[in-house]
Nucleic acid binder design. Structure first.
Lengths: 235, 235
DNA sequence: GTCTATACCACGATAGAC
DNA sequence: GTCTATCGTGGTATAGAC
């Protein structure tokens, strides 16, 4: 983690594999997964068609590799930020706003960084979420499981009076609003429309979204919240 | 709306077109758009492969036809419910909870109706949202534009102190949470996990989601909200 | 107007030579 | 590791039968 020392071999002429990865990310973001022929990727990367299958096994596995390359660091950054906050506040719980911030900023940073794909990457991700292929869904759940668990625990400490089950629901809603907003088709368009003059600024979006979600998170409990402890009555 | 009189010709042996539509919906929901070969659809419908191109033009247009068949009535139902509420409350504004209800119930009803595809249809829809093909996005925007406008106006009356631009953002967030929740890969799984014992009940989900969104909608304004009124007026 | 048979061309994948 | 050749399957276009 600490040392960012790169092996000497990294400067080699190189890495057919990396060239494929790079070209694939660009083209997948521009055109989507299914709409991008493998032949277009290999042409852009200047490699042979069969190289993809050799290095990645299949087009789907190439897709997963593209996603992991961005997602894994982002989620690690999230838990690192959260851990830092917990250290700073201990033994008191971290306030909700700060937890939210740890959850959002890495995603926003990714969305803003054009060299890492920008918001197009998040759109690609959002699409993968709804993919009917069990392969992809399982892959994503696994990618997120640990991070979600940590944030759920943090929110649990910050909101001790909120039942665990209710918290699970609301976390789900929150991730939904975030994913949809960042991945949605018209997120950029919306920013341009609703904040004209400014350069499309994700920071602005965060400042809008955070109060919205924070309020939802701390909303009064629904009527059915209390019946759960006992049994389940008919609706 | 009133007369549900069906033309006599509807009882013909027929309608290759309808058989295709029916088979396509089922298979698209089960396997997704790209994963479903046209040949599988025509086989299930018992028609010739070329019939699809003849009646719909292309696979993509067939997809749009499948979506429209469910979406159009749902959105009409939404505006009808809203209109009814406005009539009942006039000249006072309709309370937010009721507006929300008019927005959600038709979607939930669709999600629960297995004969209309159930929640699988909404997942299909959610996926289409993130589709990079401009064709599909434009189609969806158009499908929703009128309905969204009416609901935005209704919320505007109910929340006169909320700046229009802020309302636009929050409506966007709301639709995001709703879409994601209904369309998400694990919505059903989540219901099963978080409400064990019950049959997967969408009503329960609504009772959770509504307070969450309602709180977000009426949340305090973000810090940057006030600078907007002065400079650029809404388009 | 409807429907069918059939012929394209592009796709992802693989086997085998180098 | 890389390449060429080839296979099976996909969406689409068209000519012609009813």
């Amino acid at each position: 983690m600490a040392g960012t020392v790169v092996p000497l071999s990294a400067s080699l002429p190189a890495a057919t594999k990396d060239r494929i990865l790079e070209a694939a990310e660009t083209l997948f973001m521009e055109q989507g997964f299914e709409a991008t022929p493998l032949r277009a990727i290999t042409a852009a990367a200047g490699v042979n068609l069969a190289a993809v299958n050799y290095h990645f096994g299949s087009k789907e596995e190439l897709f997963q590799a593209v996603l992991t390359r961005r997602l894994d660091p982002m989620n690690q950054q999230r838990v690192a930020l959260l851990a830092e906050l917990e250290r700073a506040h201990a033994p008191a719980p971290v306030p909700c706003e700060h937890i939210l911030s740890a959850l959002f900023r890495p995603a926003l940073e990714l969305a803003r960084d054009r060299r890492r794909g920008g918001s197009n990457f998040l759109r690609l991700l959002g699409r993968a979420y709804a993919d009917p292929a069990p392969f992809i869904r399982q892959f994503l759940s696994q990618q997120y499981a640990e991070m979600i668990a940590r944030f759920k625990a943090a929110f649990g400490h910050a909101l001790p009076s909120l039942p665990k089950r209710e918290l699970s629901w609301r976390l789900h809603f929150m991730m939904g609003a975030l994913s949809y907003t960042l991945a949605g088709t018209d997120a950029l368009k919306l920013i341009a429309e609703l904040a004209p003059g400014d350069e499309p600024n994700d920071e602005l979006l965060l400042r809008r979204l955070a109060p919205f979600l924070l309020a939802g998170l701390t909303a009064p409990l629904p009527d059915i919240a209390d019946v759960e402890a006992s049994t389940h009555p008919a609706p």
